[in-house]
Design a protein around this nucleic acid. Structure first.
Lengths: 338, 338
DNA sequence: GAATTTCACGAAAACGGTTTCGTGTTGATA
DNA sequence: TATCAACACGAAACCGTTTTCGTGAAATTC
């Protein structure tokens, strides 16, 4: 077991001081060419790499960014993480991923753990529980310490920070508009409680109906507790409600609903059209494939990472916060008529 | 912006030494009850939390574990990450996730970055490129420095370390056995190049055929470059080959193949049965739903994390390496006949 | 009352780097 | 030959902890 070599070892071995070694490895002008070459050669030979922890302590920069998401077994969030990772890595940062598991308490614990020096900044998306509770003190605590934060997707006005969101309202609006233009009259919405994004999508849905002189029928809206599928509720809904199109705020609701109506003998898209949110593998490989509002998670992640790292590396912290809005894209597939 | 408070601040404020503060906060017997109470009250009031970096430097323990996976937009890997996270968090560890993106170079870079003090140990699954190249020097380098490593799923005999795998061979064997028992005669296999798991599954497939007196027909085996679906190859395969059952080494191949044969007018499972690997959402929500060999990613992650942390926290590093084998489970759904 | 413990705390080293500043040597300049 | 800048390097502080060891004062023992 060969132990990691340190500046001290090199210094002792080459009979120079630690400072000289440090400077030589940084190619400082202060050190003579001869000495630098000796030291650099030796360091290379023994594969010297500075200890990240020591550098972090000294520089008060960890080159780590903390990412807190509600769930990682979730296509959209993974695409975001991938975007963050790629961008952050390219700028020399590592990503520490923590899962809140949709729980307020875990979100708090994770933030506190990471806030004590482990990271230079946060990227996060709120847990459902936090959004339901509407308690953001743990987040304010962190920002008030001067730790940069970027929120994405599930955000809140209660916290002042950079944000990256998709235009959920527009995305839903456009989807519903498409359905209306295709002649659909009874357009249902399946949404979810508490979630900020679900609210925005619902607004877009309503707006589109209104703008086109169609009534908003509460009976056409099914609100489910959360992404865990309440199969009975969905079946009951389609038993009692006649619809010719459905907008779902996520993939799962859509896929499951499609199966339900297919089993009831309806044809998709002839009888009922479907549009979902989150353009994941389920949408792509469903049968029929599902038209979906793409959220562009990867660019969302990249932009979030860029905002964060720019802020981290920018000395003068001008207190100006930006909200980047990413346009969603409707991907049309077999579940709707072109 | 309230800055983080340190031991030094508390010491100065309360007119004691730093050591006294440190000990008092650790409830040391050395410090008088009075002083301890004063210090603890003050620390609580100002919400003192030790700086992780400083503690890490001093203790040579970061309480971070590095996870390197080929891809995060991938159901199986995310379940593993979730298992790791949950277990690690419960034991007070953070998880730094790095993506190799199936690239050898990125795998190397990430390992080197993390190995310089950022983490106490690694959990990883090999990138395809690494498995194809068969070059594991970057990994040996890390283990030779005494950094504990646990490999999962995509592992290699070339590196001595703890491993967690599923019984891929048995999983495939059992699946094929099920198909044979159901009277299938022409059982195809769609697998992938280079991947260790794909090889094991292929062995299981062949073994099951042999054990049941059935020939291994090379024409019934389609080997695809990687998980990116080569649609043409699949279509061509089914155009030229008559089969009554298909085993696929992943979900995507299976889902896509099902669509191909459905479009050709075959009924699943009456005409052709399908079994995939990785029991993800695609399998669950496919139409028909796909029978699949479940890999139990979450327990895999948890076990990997346990092996790692046990090793990290175990002083006497007895050089004994374990390979945990997790039994896979065949989940039967609509794509096969019961 | 002197010697010895016990108590409660502080000084300082250490972790592994970075960085400022000081200093001895050299060669050039007046 | 005295002066001085340039050069090349080292000493030491510092980041925020932990931990060992030392020590003065009080309490105990003889």
């Amino acid at each position: 077991m060969k132990r990691k070599i340190t500046l001290k070892h090199i210094a002792r071995e080459l009979d120079v001081s630690i400072s000289t070694v440090s400077k030589a490895l940084k190619n400082s002008e202060e050190i003579s060419r001869d000495t630098k070459e000796r030291i650099q050669a030796f360091a290379k030979l023994y594969n010297y790499k500075p200890n990240n922890i020591a550098v972090s302590l000294k520089n008060k920069r960890t080159k780590n960014i903390g990412v807190i998401i509600p769930n990682i077994v979730h296509h959209f969030f993974t695409t975001v993480v991938r975007g963050i990772e790629k961008y952050a890595n390219a700028r020399g940062y590592n990503v520490i991923v923590c899962l809140s598991d949709e729980s307020f308490d875990k979100e708090v614990i994770n933030m506190e753990m990471l806030a004590n020096g482990s990271i230079d900044g946060f990227i996060m998306s709120l847990s459902t529980e936090t959004q339901a509770k509407n308690d953001y003190n743990h987040i304010k605590e962190v920002t008030s310490q001067g730790i940069p934060l970027v929120m994405f997707d599930r955000v809140t006005d209660e916290v002042e920070c950079d944000k990256v969101i998709i235009n959920d309202k527009d995305g839903a609006y456009e989807a519903v508009k498409k359905l209306i233009d295709a002649g659909r009259k009874r357009i249902a919405l399946i949404n979810t409680e508490n979630l900020s994004v679900s609210k925005a999508r619902t607004e877009g849905y309503c707006q589109a109906l209104q703008d086109n002189g169609m009534p908003i029928d509460e009976n056409l809206i099914l609100t489910l507790p959360f992404e865990s599928i309440d199969e009975e509720a969905i079946q009951e809904f389609f038993n009692n409600t006649s619809v010719d199109a459905v907008l779902c705020v996520n993939e799962i609701f859509a896929i499951y609903s499609m199966r339900v109506v297919q089993k009831k003998g309806f044809n998709i898209p002839a009888d009922i059209s479907f549009i979902g949110f989150t353009d994941g593998p389920l949408s792509r490989y469903a049968n029929p494939s599902l038209s979906s509002v793409a959220q562009h998670g990867e660019s969302m992640g990249a932009i979030a990472a860029q905002l964060l790292i720019d802020k981290v590396e920018n000395e003068e912290d001008e207190e100006v916060f930006r909200t980047e809005i990413i346009e969603s894209t409707l991907i049309e597939r077999e579940s709707t008529i072109r």
